[in-house]
């Protein structure tokens, strides 16, 4: 469908200030052509501003945006071959679904037959054929979202931007749409850049995730990389539950309040934090050879697919499969394997 698949997007030293507030503080990032790239971060981290800069709806204070080899920094949104799915969907309420989808093609004065063909294609791709004569206010949230997607995609943009596309959907629909989006992106091969604050959404959909905080990209990598090897406390906690342990570096490992632990990758600091995800902590029948902790169960929380155990000392959280029965007060051996303990940077 797309003829310009080989255009990388380069974000170069982009800074954006609103009055005295520095919303983006020097962002550098390359988004590869054809990848599903996600900007993940809490509200106010600058992710939406960055997306709007890519769309051409904001102009960066300094820095540049390069698409392929063209500098498009000051090219207005009207002329940018980048289309957006808005958070509120922003469907034109006075136009039918068909006309909404045809909107961009009509703006560019593409001939009628071509418009017909491409809108029909878009309607089919997102299963909207039966809704084409309806008005936007007669549609459910999920349908509106699909119309919004179709309206952007029929223009065959170099990049599709998605601003929190699932925030208005209920939880059940959301997981369905996540998979749909991912499948759609793989099929089309178009570059997708999505903004979200939901880590599940980011992990499910993305080829790469850029975690943002305070106007900078803190870490960028595949979902596995950012989840398994978070670079600092913020990333570790933002992507899911994480146990944090204050640690001092010693010969061959770290010394914590729970005792000595071996590490696979030694930290660069002498004092800092090590982390381990609750589902990686193993429960043992007896004392393990290395990295063992004897802990008492303080609380058991049933979460459907698993139990979460809260244990002392150290207020550890351990995720365990549902068929094991633990009671408050039980004493158990835990193993925090060397490979799963990650030393965090600043």
């Amino acid at each position: 469908m797309n003829t310009n698949k080989e255009k990388n997007l380069t974000i170069q030293n982009v800074v954006k200030t609103f009055g005295k507030v520095e919303v983006l503080k020097t962002v550098n990032q390359v988004v590869k052509a054809g990848e599903f790239f996600t900007l993940l971060g809490p509200s106010g981290c600058g992710k939406t501003t960055l997306l709007r800069i890519i769309a051409g709806l904001e102009i960066p204070t300094t820095g540049s945006i390069i698409l392929g080899t063209d500098d498009i920094t000051s090219l207005p949104a009207t002329k940018r071959h980048v289309n957006m799915v808005f958070q509120s969907y922003a469907l034109f309420p006075h136009l039918t679904i068909y006309e909404n989808i045809a909107f961009g093609l009509r703006s560019r004065k593409i001939n009628a037959d071509e418009i017909k063909r491409r809108v029909a294609e878009g309607l089919e791709m997102l299963r909207l054929e039966s809704l084409q004569d309806r008005m936007p206010d007669q549609l459910s949230g999920g349908q509106k979202q699909r119309v919004s997607l179709a309206r952007a995609l029929v223009n065959e943009p170099d990049i599709l931007l998605l601003d929190e596309p699932m925030s208005a959907l209920d939880a059940k629909l959301r997981s369905q749409v996540q998979e749909d989006l991912r499948r759609l992106q793989r099929k089309l091969g178009t570059t997708f850049i999505m903004v979200t604050h939901d880590q599940d959404e980011a992990l499910v959909c993305s080829d790469r995730i850029a975690v943002m905080n305070g106007g900078v990209i803190v870490q960028c990598g595949t979902p596995e990389e950012v989840y398994d090897y978070p670079c600092n406390k913020f990333v570790a906690e933002f992507l899911g539950a994480a146990n944090m342990l204050k640690a001092k570096r010693v010969e061959g490992g770290v010394e914590t309040e729970l005792g000595f632990f071996c590490l696979e990758k030694m930290p660069e600091w002498s004092e800092g934090l090590v982390t381990i995800r609750p589902e990686w902590i193993k429960i043992r029948e007896s004392r393990p050879e290395r990295n063992g902790v004897l802990a008492t169960v303080d609380d058991v929380v049933y979460r459907g697919t698993n139990f979460d155990l809260f244990l002392s000392p150290g207020n550890l959280r351990v995720r365990t499969s549902a068929n094991k029965n633990f009671r408050v007060g039980d004493t158990i051996w835990l193993e925090l394997t060397a490979g799963d303990l990650v030393a965090l940077g600043d």
Partner: peptide, 26 residues
């Protein structure tokens, strides 16, 4: 005014006149 409609019209290649007629006038 819902400005996201204005932005959507701009994002979809509208001329100034078209932005006014389709996003602002209605």
């Amino acid at each position: 005014l819902d400005w996201s409609l204005v932005e959507a019209a701009q994002d979809l290649y509208s001329s100034r006149m078209r932005v006014f007629m389709q996003a602002i006038l209605p």
